[in-house]
C-alpha cells in the first residue's frame, strides 16, 4: 500500500500503513484529535489522496470545536462569556448536530455539560489530568439544558455561563465529514471507511457483505472474549463506554460520560453500548444517550429503532433492534438521520 505519498499538512502527524492481510484494501493510521484516525480505502491507489482529505477535515474540525485548544472557535466563544455570535459554517454544523442530538435523545446527550465535566476534573487534555489528585471533585453541576442555546443558521445565542462540550457528536461528525471528503477526492470511485477513535463511518461501495469491523467489549479486544466481528455496509457505527477515560479524585473513580440531569458520571447498568445508524453522528449520539439513560437505555434504543449491542457491567451481552449475535454477520443499517438536516428541516434549533 502506498500511504507515504499522502501530503502532510503542517502539524499533522504522519500516516503509517497498516497491514490487515487484505491486499485489495489500503489501511493507514495516525494520531488525531487526542485519539487515532484510521482510513481504509479501495482501490488501494486512492490511499494517498484519502489521507490528505482526512487531514484537511481533521485540521478544520480541531480549529472549530476543540474544547482544549485555546485558539479554537469554541474556546473563543466560551471566553466571550455568552452573547450572540456568527459562527463559521463548520462550527455551526457541529453545534447544530449536537443540539439535534439533544433534541432526539430527550436531552440525554446534552452539549451543555461543559461545566459539569470541568467540575469533575476533566478540564484539560485527558493525559494531563492528575489521576491521583487527593482533593475531591467539585460539586456536581447539572447541565443547564440544551434548550437555552439558540442556533439559527450561522447565528448562535449562547447564554452567559453555558459551556458547550461537543464530545458526544463532534468526533463522529468528523468521521462523517472525512469519509465524504475521501469519496469526493476519489471522484466517488471505490469505497472508504474512516474511524476516529472507534467512531466509524463508511461511504461508497463497501467490500463484499460490508466493511469488516471489530466491536470490542473492553479496551483490549485481544484479551476480550466477547469481541465480535461485524460487517458494516453503509452508514456508521459507534461505541460509548465507561471503561475508558476514567480518572480518580479523592479515591473516587470518575469517567467522561455525564448524566446531564445530575452532572455526575452516568452510573447505569451498561458499561458499553454500540449502535449502528445511517450516520456515525447518529450512532454516537445514541450510544452516549444510552449510557446516560441507565436503566432506560433499552427502552430508548427500542423507541429510536436502532440496532444496538449492550454490555452489562457484569459482562453479559444484549442485542437489540436486529443487531446480529453471530460473528461476521452484516449489520442492518436503518435509513434516515436524526441529527443532520439543519434548522431548515426542524424550524430552527430553539
Amino acid at each position: 500500500m502506498t500511504t507515504t505519498s499522502a501530503p502532510q499538512l503542517a502539524g499533522a502527524a504522519a500516516w503509517r500503513p497498516v497491514t490487515t492481510g487484505d491486499d485489495a484494501i489500503a489501511v493507514a493510521e495516525r494520531p488525531a484529535l487526542g485519539t487515532s484516525a484510521r482510513v481504509a480505502v479501495w482501490p488501494p491507489e486512492h490511499a494517498g489522496r484519502a489521507c490528505a482529505a482526512v487531514d484537511e477535515v481533521l485540521a478544520a474540525l480541531d480549529r472549530q470545536a476543540s474544547r482544549f485548544r485555546r485558539d479554537s472557535e469554541l474556546c473563543w466563544l466560551h471566553r466571550a462569556g455568552g452573547g450572540l455570535f456568527m459562527l463559521s459554517d463548520g462550527l455551526a454544523e457541529a453545534v447544530g448536530v449536537a443540539l439535534a442530538a439533544a433534541r432526539w435523545t430527550g436531552g440525554r446527550a446534552d452539549p451543555t455539560v461543559g461545566d459539569a465535566l470541568i467540575s469533575l476534573g476533566y478540564d484539560r487534555d485527558f493525559a494531563a489530568i492528575d489521576q491521583l489528585r487527593r482533593d475531591p471533585p467539585g460539586a456536581p453541576v447539572p447541565a443547564p439544558g440544551w434548550q437555552l442555546v439558540e442556533l439559527d443558521g450561522l447565528m448562535l445565542r449562547l447564554p452567559a455561563g453555558v459551556r458547550l462540550d461537543l464530545g458526544a457528536t463532534a468526533k463522529a461528525l468528523g468521521s462523517d465529514r472525512a469519509v465524504r471528503a475521501v469519496m469526493s477526492a476519489s471522484a466517488q470511485a471505490g469505497g472508504a471507511l474512516v474511524s476516529l477513535g472507534g467512531d466509524i463511518a463508511v461511504a461508497g461501495t463497501p467490500p463484499r457483505d460490508g466493511w469488516p469491523v471489530t466491536v470490542a467489549d473492553g479496551p483490549d479486544p485481544a484479551v476480550s472474549p466477547r469481541a465480535q466481528l461485524v460487517r458494516l455496509p453503509c452508514g456508521g457505527v459507534a461505541t460509548s463506554s465507561v471503561t475508558c477515560r476514567r480518572w480518580r479524585r479523592a479515591g473516587q473513580t470518575l469517567h467522561h460520560i455525564v448524566d446531564p440531569r445530575t452532572g455526575l458520571p452516568a452510573d447505569g447498568p451498561w458499561r458499553m453500548v454500540s449502535a449502528v445508524a445511517a450516520t456515525c453522528a447518529d450512532a454516537n449520539a445514541a450510544t452516549t444517550a444510552a449510557i446516560a439513560a441507565g436503566h432506560e437505555a433499552e427502552g430508548w434504543l427500542a423507541t429510536a429503532g436502532l440496532p444496538a449491542r449492550l454490555v452489562a457491567r457484569g459482562g453479559a451481552v444484549r442485542y437489540l433492534g436486529g443487531w446480529p449475535a453471530d460473528d461476521g454477520a452484516t449489520l442492518p443499517v436503518p435509513a434516515g438521520s436524526h441529527v443532520y438536516g439543519g434548522p431548515g428541516r426542524l424550524g430552527g434549533w430553539r
Binding site: 469488516p212 471489530t214 460509548s240
Partner: peptide, 16 residues
C-alpha cells in the same frame, strides 16, 4: 466491492 476477510477497524470505548 472486493473481498475483505480481516477486520480493518475497531469500535470500542472512545479514544481506544
Amino acid at each position: 466491492g472486493p473481498q475483505a476477510i480481516h477486520s480493518v477497524a475497531t469500535t470500542s470505548g472512545s479514544g481506544v
